[in-house]
Simulated assay, not measured.
Amino acid sequence: MTSHDDLPRPPWQQRIQVGGFNPFSTVDWPGKLAAVVFLRGCPWRCGYCHNPELQTRTGPAPIAWDDVEAQLVRRRGFIDGVVFSGGEPTADRALPDAIARVRELGLAVGLHTGGAYPERLQALLPLLDWVGFDLKTDPGEYQTVTGVAGSGSRAWASASTVAASEVAHEFRLTYHGALVSPAAAQRVAQLSAHLGVEHFALQAFRAEGCEQAWLARDAALPDELVARIAPLFPHFKLRSAS
């Protein structure tokens, strides 16, 4: 007799690239206690990235989906939902199946994304309960942060789609003066407010995990920038590096 453990896994479970797992987080989905599934792969190479080990999908996945699911099952009743993060989680084409499986477990689903794949994100929105949208800079200056031409138009197309959706969302901008000027940061906030965004977070750069050691210098958030951005949003958060 074949046991359940001997049954072949669905193809998507064999393809999904889970690079990390956090069983309990109070910060990845504001107001919720969530598990976080980190997926490998990202088309961008942002200088301040603090998860550079998740940028590539080379080699087998470090964590099997079976192990993730087993932990989620044990935590039902203790967590509100699951956040898929990265890397850029929409880079993984198995993501829609993973989201569907999490919903079958009775858990809500959140997503962290930079919007690199607008079409994929638009298709995912009906499956999501919340989106944390990471903006990089002014649309015309994206390449200076991501290193990829055309990334600005894709990101802001995604931003418009999320802002116009009925899915709860928070837009956030990580600030470092060497990569994002105060003027560009203010324009990001103004464009977000124009899209109707109400929840916006301005985040200080975190050196932890970043491969560019020099960025640890001069990373403070200017007080005058905070003062200009905060009034634009009904729900504004300032997140320090600590």
Results as ranks from 00 to 15, higher is better:
Leu191Gly: 01
Leu124Ile: 08
Gln71Ala: 13
Arg93Glu: 15
Glu104Ala: 09
Leu135Thr: 11
Leu225Tyr: 03
Glu170His: 06
Cys46Val: 08
Arg239Ala: 03
Gly41His: 04
Val188Ile: 05
Ala116Gln: 08
Gln14Ser: 09
Thr146Ser: 14
His194Asn: 13
Glu211Lys: 10
Val148Trp: 03
Gly106Glu: 10
Pro62Cys: 07
Val68Glu: 02
Gly41Trp: 06
Ala61Ile: 12
Gly47Gln: 04
Ala204Tyr: 01
Gly150Met: 07
Asp223Phe: 06
Phe84Trp: 05
Arg103Glu: 01
Ala94Ser: 15
His176Asn: 06
Ala98Trp: 07
Thr26Arg: 09
Leu107Val: 06
Gly150Ser: 06
Arg103Lys: 13
Ala183Met: 00
Gln122Lys: 10
Ser153Lys: 15
Ala216Gly: 10
Ala219Pro: 02
Leu191Ser: 00
Phe205Val: 10
Arg187Ser: 14
Phe78Met: 12
Pro139Asp: 04
Trp156Met: 01
Gly81Tyr: 03
Ala100Val: 03
Ser151Phe: 04
Ala185His: 03
Ala94Pro: 07
Ile79Ala: 02
Ile229Glu: 01
Val73His: 00
Ile229Ala: 01
Leu95Cys: 02
Ala178Arg: 15
Ile229Gln: 00
Leu72Trp: 06
Leu121Phe: 07
Ser242Gly: 14
Trp65Ser: 05
Arg76Val: 09
Ala163Met: 13
Leu232Pro: 02
Thr2Arg: 14
Ala168Gln: 14
Cys46Arg: 01
Thr90Phe: 04
Asp5Tyr: 12
Leu128Ala: 10
Arg187Asp: 13
Glu104Thr: 15
Arg206Cys: 14
Ala94Gln: 00
Val180Leu: 04
Ala108Leu: 15
Gln71Asp: 15
Ala163Thr: 11
Leu191Asn: 03
Val109Cys: 07
Ala123Gly: 04
Leu39Asn: 09
Gln55Ala: 12
Ala193Arg: 01
Leu7Gln: 14
His176Thr: 05
Val18Ala: 09
Gly59Arg: 08
Gly209Trp: 03
Asp80Ser: 08
Val73Asp: 06
Phe133Arg: 10
Pro182Arg: 08
Gly114Thr: 05
Trp130Pro: 05
Thr174Cys: 12
Thr113Gly: 10
Gly196Leu: 09
Ala64Cys: 09
Glu53His: 08
Pro89Glu: 04
Gly87Met: 01
Ala61Trp: 10
Asp129Ser: 08
Arg45Phe: 13
Pro52Trp: 06
Ala116Thr: 05
Thr90Ala: 11
Arg206Asp: 11
Arg101Phe: 10
Ser85Arg: 08
Pro62Gln: 03
Cys210Asp: 05
Val27His: 12
Gly77Ile: 07
Gln212Ile: 14
Ala216Ile: 12
Gly114Gln: 09
Gly115Ala: 10
Ala184Asp: 12
Ala61Pro: 03
Ile79Leu: 04
Phe38Lys: 02
Trp214Glu: 11
Leu135Ser: 09
Gly140Ile: 02
Leu202Asn: 03
Thr113Arg: 11
Pro10Ser: 05
Gly19Arg: 00
Phe171Ile: 00
Leu173Glu: 06
Leu95Asn: 02
Val180Phe: 03
Arg45His: 14
Asp218Ala: 15
Gly106Cys: 09
Pro231Asn: 12
Val73Phe: 08
